[in-house]
């Protein structure tokens, strides 16, 4: 999958990595995506993708202890919404994106759905570790 570009003309969000911080950020970002003309179905998917990304940062990168997140959201030349998300927490295990494989529903898993949902509902995801920062770049679906 090609890495999405840096968002152009992006708006920037400072987010506290905790469940309430994630809720507040999603409210603001969803309003912005609606104003940017993203269709309802695409917004619904974007909200799931960003909720899972931010909750994972809170839970795994920062281990529930909280920490800062910087999110930049913009629209690419092709009209796609692109987003970069930076945190200063622990790196992804193995320095790579987690598995995209959905857990078997018949094992009644209570977790492990997040990254498979992110991969299914976004048009592209890239990860890199820059010094002490994690950076995710996401391309959201337009339809």
């Amino acid at each position: 999958m090609p890495k999405p570009p840096e968002p152009r003309g992006a708006t920037r969000h400072r987010i506290e990595a905790c469940p309430e911080g994630v809720r507040a950020a999603l409210g603001a970002i969803m309003a912005e995506l609606a104003a940017g003309g993203l269709a309802e179905g695409a917004r619904r998917d974007a909200e799931i993708v960003l909720a899972e990304v931010l909750t994972n940062i809170a839970r795994h990168a920062y281990g529930g202890a909280g920490g800062p997140v910087r999110l930049a959201l913009g629209f690419g030349r092709d009209g796609a919404a692109v987003c970069s998300v930076i945190d200063w927490g622990r790196p992804m295990p193995g320095g790579a994106l987690p598995s995209a494989l959905m857990p078997d529903p018949h094992h009644r898993p209570e977790g492990g759905f997040g990254w498979p949902l992110i991969r299914l509902l976004s048009a592209g995801v890239g990860y890199d570790r820059l010094g002490r920062r994690n950076r995710l770049r996401l391309r959201l679906r337009t339809a």
Binding site: R44, I48, M102, P105, H106, R108, F113, L117, L120, L121
Partner: peptide, 16 residues
């Protein structure tokens, strides 16, 4: 609702 159903279907929990 639509958003709830999307997550339930994509995770195949609708089979459970």
């Amino acid at each position: 609702g639509p958003a709830v159903e999307r997550v339930v279907r994509l995770t195949r929990m609708d089979t459970v």
